[in-house]
Design a protein around this nucleic acid. Structure first.
Length: 506
DNA sequence: CTAGGGTTAG
């Protein structure tokens, strides 16, 4: 006869060794005599091996649930990023009369972020009542919550309430201040921390980046004695984000020289840099790197790869990567449809869209921007119109400014200027540069000046609009007005956008 | 047996 304690222990041993089936068999054999710890261990086993359904089923079947059972299940839904299921479980737990503990709150709060941010103050109230506010885990979860809510005072108060702070508590405060845009305060906090680690410094670097202070980020970055893959990736991303892709790639090369190995986060970022400055050579080499490292299952990474290929001119390679993907998501589909649009393959874009729907993916607003811009390139007015009109009722996607400017462009390029103008008048927002630009370029294309005249006083601060007006006036032979426009452009320091083509960097 | 910081794509 085996004691129940040893059943729990043996289940844990099996789980540690990855023998999940043996663990289950043991549980089933001792079904009647098992204690809750054994059941909980089995649930933990399923969760660590990414078998959430099995875990849930077992949770429903177990005879007695304790607070650990609930917490474990909640941590599973946290791991699978399922805030709604997590919330339901939290409610169920309370209904079942189980009192939440510090584990419950730290898991629940972090799982609720982005979905139920508004619950944070209420949970905080509950935490105070249960006297759990001095726990470090609960504290950092709450701090992240208040950061999301942009509530600086509560952030600080929660921090103060954590009596015995550790480095993570301080780091959470750093993140908070940085995300609230308080870079000076964050720097002061950093300087006064009793202990810092690589995460603290990386938080500082990233904080300066998200606050558009790239040079300060670089200065901290350069002073760091130890940098890991996260630090390097943050810096590369910073340069990429502000369109200094050459520097981004150079930092990447420094990273390789320093001996730190890039991961899928790094590679996605560098591919984005390659895409933005058409650095095909490096992008292509990174593809080999991905295959060698066995990263071909990373959806985000492969999507970045598709985007790089299509933006560097190799649409076929883009298709090839896309077809090879075992798992896809909406973004992957969008990027292939966008690739078709850029390459003028309008029919193919429509076709990929149909396939996307057939495969059960839900389009979003980007899908429609890409689809409509494909229609613009292919002059497919009817199809564009059809999709523009149906996106709301079929998928609940409200047309945004970008969709309107695509439609204006579509009508404009195919000579239907009245329809274009009508749409501009009817649209539910104040038209932006994109929309006016599309209309003006249509005027230029079809030598139609009527709508253009009305746009003259809207040209302020928009170099594109100025240059288009100059072009239109010149075409019409109205030289004095063209010159006047040029003068204005010089006055406000507007320059024509520089065109660029491929750059070979490495 | 259960919990927390910094990095990725359209």
């Amino acid at each position: 006869m085996i004691s129940t304690l040893s059943v729990a222990n043996r289940i844990q041993d099996f789980v540690r060794d990855g023998n999940i089936n043996d663990a289950r068999q043991l549980l089933d054999q001792n079904h009647k005599s098992c204690d809750t710890v054994a059941w909980n261990s089995m649930i933990t086993g399923y969760i660590t091996h990414n078998q959430m359904q099995c875990a849930h089923k077992l949770f429903d079947q177990m005879p007695v649930r304790d607070v650990v059972s609930w917490n474990t299940m909640m941590s599973g839904f946290n791991k699978t990023k399922d805030p709604h299921k997590l919330y339901q479980l939290f409610l169920q737990m309370n209904r079942a009369g189980e009192t939440p503990n510090q584990f419950t709150f730290s898991t629940a709060i972090s799982g609720f972020l982005n979905a139920f941010d508004v619950l944070v103050p209420q949970l905080h109230g509950l935490i105070l009542r249960l006297g759990l506010h001095s726990n470090v885990f609960v504290g950092s979860a709450l701090m992240r919550g208040y950061t999301h809510l942009a509530d600086r005072e509560s952030l600080q108060r929660v921090f103060d309430d954590v009596v015995v702070k550790d480095v993570s508590t301080w780091n959470a405060l750093l993140v908070g201040y940085m995300e609230l845009g308080l870079t000076d305060e964050a720097e002061t906090i950093f300087d006064n921390m009793p202990e810092v680690n690589i995460i603290s410094s990386t938080t500082l670097v990233n904080g300066y980046i998200i606050n558009s202070k790239i040079d300060q980020a670089r200065s901290i970055f350069d002073d760091m004695l130890q940098k890991n893959v996260v630090t390097w990736t943050a810096m590369i991303k910073g340069y990429t984000q502000y369109d200094n892709c050459i520097e981004a790639i150079q930092v990447f090369i420094l990273m390789l020289k320093s001996g730190v190995c890039p991961n899928h986060f790094t590679l996605s970022t560098v591919l984005d840099a390659c895409a933005r400055c058409s650095t095909f050579h490096l992008g292509n080499q990174l593809h080999s790197c991905i295959l060698k490292k066995g990263l071909h299952c990373e959806v985000v990474l492969l999507t970045a790869l598709i985007d790089m290929y299509t933006k560097c001119g190799d649409i076929e390679a883009g298709f090839c990567v896309f077809e090879s993907m075992e798992k896809k998501n909406t973004v992957s589909w969008n990027s292939v449809i966008g690739g078709c649009a850029r390459h003028g393959l309008a029919k193919r874009a429509l076709c990929e869209f149909e396939k996307m729907i057939e495969s059960g993916f839900k389009p979003d607003h980007v899908t429609y921007i890409n689809l409509l811009s494909a229609c613009v390139h292919g002059g497919l007015v009817k199809e564009g119109e059809r999709h523009f009109n149906s996106m709301g009722e079929r998928y609940g996607i409200k047309p945004e400014m970008k969709h309107y400017s695509c439609m204006v462009d579509l009508y404009g390029k195919s000579g239907e200027l009245e329809k274009a103008e009508k749409l501009v008048k009817e649209m539910p927002f104040e038209p932006d540069v994109g929309v006016w630009g599309a209309l003006l370029s249509a005027c230029g294309l079809h030598s139609c000046y009527e709508p253009a005249n009305a746009l003259e006083n809207l040209a302020h601060d928009h170099p594109t609009i100025y240059s288009m007006l100059v072009k239109l006036h010149s075409e019409k032979g109205e030289w004095s007005r063209a010159i006047e426009m040029r003068k204005k452009m010089i006055e406000i320091g507007a320059r024509q956008q520089k065109a660029g083509s491929r750059l070979d960097l490495v």
